[in-house]
Nucleic acid binder design. Structure first.
Lengths: 339, 339
DNA sequence: TTTTTTATTGACAACGTTGACAGTCTGGTG
DNA sequence: CACCAGACTGTCAACGTTGTCAATAAAAAA
């Protein structure tokens, strides 16, 4: 044991050729005679030689990318990650993951450090980091390749290739669904002024109400976070202060699941006494009882797309990939009933 | 834009010292005068110089580790990952994640390649990969540092530092809890002969029954996977073929959640008509209704420990960290009632 | 035949860092 | 005063690749 890893020169010596020839074989370059090629390949096989990535990286651009996110416990993240990974594996890239606290000042430093030290060649940014223009600019200045995922009906600017997800349209669609079923007092759970997705969904909710000729009732709009616990707490608060509400729009599935839980605790039957909808179509939205009516957000697909764009950006820098928008579809299950 | 990243030599030139002195300052070596130190630091600041990791890596051991897993969608994985990440960040390591299909022959090649090409210096293995002695040996031969997480009351061998989790004792404890509540016909859902954790929990289940003087009823042991869907399906199968069963031991929380769902579908009240327990204490085990009685498996903590052991192994190779065992605790919630 | 092209190979210098080692001061000690 | 240790600094060779360019041999064109 403690055998040193074979290097390109070891292979060269055994094959009786120059180490440059070995390099050529390894990189599948032209102008190598079949004779040399087979001889070298045999030795590579024999020694189980594998080129040292680190050394290689000194001459070439990094073959790895970073996934930067903020909310480590959500399903959102793991689905995204899986999507990115499928793409990475296909293209032979490695993935470095980098959770971070977007509130902290460290973020900028950490990110520019990953780029600045040549660890990764590109970065996939998710909200809320992806919404900071200055951060994106800083990264770009360091010659990082950046792809960002944001909420919106179109990209906010032309800084970098962007994937935008139209929360507003979907928020409107699912609210309209509730209105169609006869609901008139629909609560919105999970409003958060600094959270673009929340805001988009909220705007869609307002638009649907307005189009239908109803006003937004302020006491039915509850602020909170995108978590189960927050969902429980918001629902309790709401049900205490209002008894006319017949439907709940949870800003994501976790909130909706929390609402479901709180309703159960209050002995309210869903959907008979109270209709509930979520947003995201995370796996557990079909595992609750009743299954949640929600909006399908194809996180893995979105992320895979982001990864594909980033990799193309790194490999063929001359051709900038286009932005890409995602429209979201309703998923009807059993948590809504007509009134 | 397109400014080249400053190198150690750029700093040296501007500071009017040799680049070796800069290196010394960067690495906090002794024997550097305060004068040089402050001068260099000023220039570093000014240029925003960051040492190139790749180049550094050519002279030193890699500062990153790989997390290798097989079941990308489970909570288990994301919790583990978060645990590893906390540890990594603290120690300044980067994490490369590597999902893989343990059934495929590629695994060995992929792993030895990560090591062989110097991408990472160490690997954290989870089941079922961690159970392959030959894989561990292969990795070790490549001078990889390996820490593995396995199921068992003690490490299976002395190949590498190991974290072992005593599924059997916990499986026994939770079965005893059910027996204490008067249950006599307890089904075991999620038996899988190739799955060590499943097997351990199953052995605990059997032991509890035997100690209490009951036999294991074969028709109450259902084979399946650790997923929600499998849980639903196994429960349906079970309830069709037996009507004496009063309690269900789901081999993990997802199975238990599936069982809950299937019971609901059959109009069975939990826990009144049927008691259900899970295993793992994943977040959603307290988000179901009723909350699941389960076994707390501190995945993040386990993984953080693994990472800490691995890092120590990489940094101070002379001192091998000790194995480390985890005992699991019952979490009593509302999915069990006395009979 | 001579020249040009085409295929094939090798020497050598990068890449940006750290480690080994050899200097050069300064001040104290014999 | 000579010597030495200690504090500091610099030179140079690695590390394992890839890129550049020159050298060679064989084949084709003149």
């Amino acid at each position: 044991m403690a055998v040193k890893k074979p290097t390109i020169k070891d292979v060269a010596r055994l094959a009786g050729v120059s180490f440059k020839s070995v390099s050529r074989v390894v990189n599948n370059e032209a102008w190598v005679s079949d004779e040399v090629r087979t001889k070298v390949q045999a030795v590579i096989e024999q020694l189980n030689y594998q080129p040292n990535r680190t050394a290689r990286l000194m001459r070439t651009a990094p073959f790895s990318l970073a996934f930067v996110y903020d909310n480590p416990n959500s399903h959102y993240v793991i689905e995204m990650q899986n999507g990115i990974l499928t793409e990475c594996r296909e293209k032979g890239f490695e993935l470095v993951i980098h959770p971070t606290d977007s509130a902290s000042d460290q973020v900028r430093h950490e990110l520019t450090s990953m780029i600045g030290t040549n660890l990764v060649g590109g970065v996939i940014l998710t909200p809320p980091l992806s919404e900071s223009t200055t951060l994106v600019q800083q990264l770009l200045e360091q010659q990082a390749k950046v792809v960002r995922i944001v909420s919106g009906a179109e990209p906010p600017d032309e800084l970098c290739p962007t994937i935008y997800v139209d929360d507003e349209a979907a928020g409107q669609a699912i609210t309209e669904h509730l209105l169609d079923q006869g609901h008139r007092h629909i609560a919105f759970l999970g409003y958060h002024k600094d959270h673009k997705s929340s805001l988009g969904r909220y705007r869609g909710y307002c638009a649907a109400l307005h189009h239908a000729g109803f006003a937004v009732e302020d006491e039915l709009v509850i602020s909170g976070h995108f978590t189960f616990d927050s969902g429980v707490q918001m629902t309790e608060q709401l049900l205490q202060q209002s008894n006319k509400v017949t439907a709940l729009f949870g800003c994501n599935d976790e909130i909706a699941a929390g609402a479901l839980y709180a309703a159960r605790k209050r002995q309210l039957a869903v959907p008979e006494d109270l209709s509930i909808v979520g947003f995201e179509n995370s796996p557990f939205s079909r595992q609750t009882w009743p299954g949640l009516t929600t909006v399908h957000q194809p996180n893995a697909e979105i992320a895979a797309r982001a990864a594909a764009m980033l990799i193309s950006l790194m490999l063929e820098p001359e051709q900038t990939p286009k932005h890409c928008g995602f429209k979201l579809q309703l998923v009807l299950r059993d948590s809504v009933s007509p009134i």
